[in-house]
Design a protein around this nucleic acid. Sequence first.
DNA 1: GTCTATATTCAGATAGAC
DNA 2: GTCTATCTGAATATAGAC
Lengths: 238, 238
Amino acid sequence: MADEIASVVDTRGRILDAAERLFAQHGLEATSMRMLSAAAGCNLASTNYHFGGKEGLIREVFRRRLTWLNRERLRVLDEMEAAATGRPLKPHLILEAFFGVALRMAADSEGGGATFMRLLGRTYAEPSQFIRNFLAEEYAAVLERFKRALFRALPAVPEAEIVWRLHFMLGAMSYAIAGTDALKLIAHCELDEANPAAALAPRLMSFLLGGLRAPLPAGCTAQRAKPDAKVRRSRRAA
Amino acid sequence: MADEIASVVDTRGRILDAAERLFAQHGLEATSMRMLSAAAGCNLASTNYHFGGKEGLIREVFRRRLTWLNRERLRVLDEMEAAATGRPLKPHLILEAFFGVALRMAADSEGGGATFMRLLGRTYAEPSQFIRNFLAEEYAAVLERFKRALFRALPAVPEAEIVWRLHFMLGAMSYAIAGTDALKLIAHCELDEANPAAALAPRLMSFLLGGLRAPLPAGCTAQRAKPDAKVRRSRRAA
DNA sequence: GTCTATATTCAGATAGAC
DNA sequence: GTCTATCTGAATATAGAC
């Protein structure tokens, strides 16, 4: 990762850094290749030379961070599962592996991780077809893996319910990371935190865990509930 | 509202309906005034005549639904508070007033409410300054009111924590409504629901309530906790 | 109020010199 | 690899006839 990120020397790296920053600030479409080239201190033609067009550039901006992020998520999860020696992981560990890694990246304001996570959060809502397909590809394996881990961790909760809740958790995280200003709007009064980005992680984690372990909605039948009395316990014991 | 929405007769209404649909589908910037005029069956110049430009049109698309939505939220909350005769409302009722109203609108596929809510969900992540300011204005009063209701309902939870959690809940809802396809990505296997939009509401509500009532993150001191033994109870009794 | 026609600006992309 | 210069298309917006 270190080789690939934040190269002040070569043009290619400078373009990617500038793109990341401007995309996060103004959005993908509102950022023109001209704007971007100027910010990177190079020529318009150069950006097209390196990435073959705007679409290629966007893809690369996401790829260089996302592959690392998702690999790291899997690494942490693997580590945890190895330590658990066959027993299902507790839900809070699974969330830690998925969201904790992302939140640590979002708190890294020097390496550009914060900028990228802001961009990523906004991009989840992007209607453009090509970017949705691209993100779907990048995420498919990771989501599948974490989904299965949650299934194992919460055997009393119907799988469909877990899928929905994973969806909700992704939304809460995206929005929380992308919208710092939205929080200020709600707060109105000053939040006492000096650094909101650092204060976010523990707060979001406990919120997500609460949502994941919430009582099931009325009329929801447990499809895989074991016929013993541990049902209630396993919904609490995270 | 009935007068203002879905007029097939007058051009102005047809433009608004077409704009709502196309904005939700392609995004604000990716939808051109030409595309939009064609879909509305009128001329490009006409749309500029009625709304004074693209920005004015966007503003009006949101205004006609948002003022109704937020007024309805306040109406329901007022009604609940009147019925409670001075006692603080239970958290689940407050969430019902805020999110329930929105979710019912999102489930209305005939009146265009579903389309609009999809648009709204995506727009929360919009980086454009003018649209953020506009939404901030439209929401300020409602958020303030619901914030205070939650403060009263959860006296043992620090106000800052409630603000954060309101923020998280807004994110979960936006994303849940905006991203139907994202869910399919996660699911991979088929969800048995015939109508995902209708299945959403109870699931999201229980998730949000679980998050709102989650145990406080470690190191979080209750700033207004009363010095009696009811603290634990009031965090559960929703 | 609705149209045709047009002004203006700016987007993404490329050819070709160096 | 990087530049200048330019092509081509599409965007918002408006002037002015009807």
